[in-house]
Design a protein around this nucleic acid. Sequence first.
DNA 1: ACTACTATTAGTACCTAGTCTTAATATCAC
DNA 2: GTGATATTAAGACTAGGTACTAATAGTAGT
Lengths: 187, 187
Amino acid sequence: MRRNKKERQALLVATIKETPFITDEDLAEKFSVSVQTIRLDRLELSIPELRERIKNVAEKTFDDEVKSLPLDEVIGEIIDMELDHSAISIFEVKEEHAFKRNGIARGHYLFAQANSLAVALINDDFALTAKANIHFTRSVKLGERIIAKAKVVNINTETGRTFVEVKSFVNAELVFVGEFEMYRAKK
Amino acid sequence: MRRNKKERQALLVATIKETPFITDEDLAEKFSVSVQTIRLDRLELSIPELRERIKNVAEKTFDDEVKSLPLDEVIGEIIDMELDHSAISIFEVKEEHAFKRNGIARGHYLFAQANSLAVALINDDFALTAKANIHFTRSVKLGERIIAKAKVVNINTETGRTFVEVKSFVNAELVFVGEFEMYRAKK
DNA sequence: ACTACTATTAGTACCTAGTCTTAATATCAC
DNA sequence: GTGATATTAAGACTAGGTACTAATAGTAGT
């Protein structure tokens, strides 16, 4: 029941990692020691108090949630464009596009860049994505610059349905491939 | 500078929504009223105290993060199986599979169900997914029962590569389609 | 057994960001 | 001015701590 210091501290770290919303009092009971001992342990192990732990978790989410929202605009800077034929855009992965935890770009930004480009490529008033086949071939990290190249593969002369292929690269490495079937409104 | 009650309370709601980690003291300063007034406002508007607000945000994340982890097992209950031919599984979307915020099932569970089924279908020691083309045709809500039907489309007699098509339904409605290219180890 | 040292426990004062309650003013409508 | 509503203040209490001091327990070395 009662372990030595080292053992207890190791378990303490594990316990707090697993259930971070636990008070010192509950921890003291769990390890059959006094609250003061738990506090000394936390001090030694540099584990912040409950409220700080809760706050840390909350801040992580809040930042991620808030910053990832504005996805309504065009993602990426279009640097070359030949309507109904091909286009190129550049998108740099900044803090607000990546997960704080590991710096890996959120997939929907890669998708958004490709999709924006496919939409922009359509020489009509409205363009909507009907279907998409996407493939993430490599994860993209914070600070990397993604170059998306879109190419019209086929236009159905009757329906106007346009098939666009987008390939995204970081340096020369393929990170994303998507095939988009676009619906266009001629009016 | 100093607004009337209604105006102030409307702004209060907006302010807290925007920056939930703000103390009553800061709010009092912002609206040039006393701390007590802010507390009366929160009472009337049923806005919990700062610590509770922080905790709510943290709990939301934590639950979502923790509960979505165990994805290593087979997802869904296999109710029919003919090796190398076809299979059916049922999966019910429970709380831990859906986003708390809106009750919509996380996509990876639909993928996992389909993928599990495709793997199980292979009549060999090992089966791995080489490629997948997936399509989410409708969002699935908490409490719904997903029926996935897998069918072997083609087996390459030389390489053993197996193509499996999985279609998932809620009632009679198609919610997911996936084509899986499976790699198999004969050993 | 005595000393030295670490580990544990206890107790006090203080802090933040509140709650809950009572009471005194301020402001406004009529 | 009289009420009603709004605002401010003051006091007691709470959780979950920090920071500090001090006492006690247990263990190892000599």
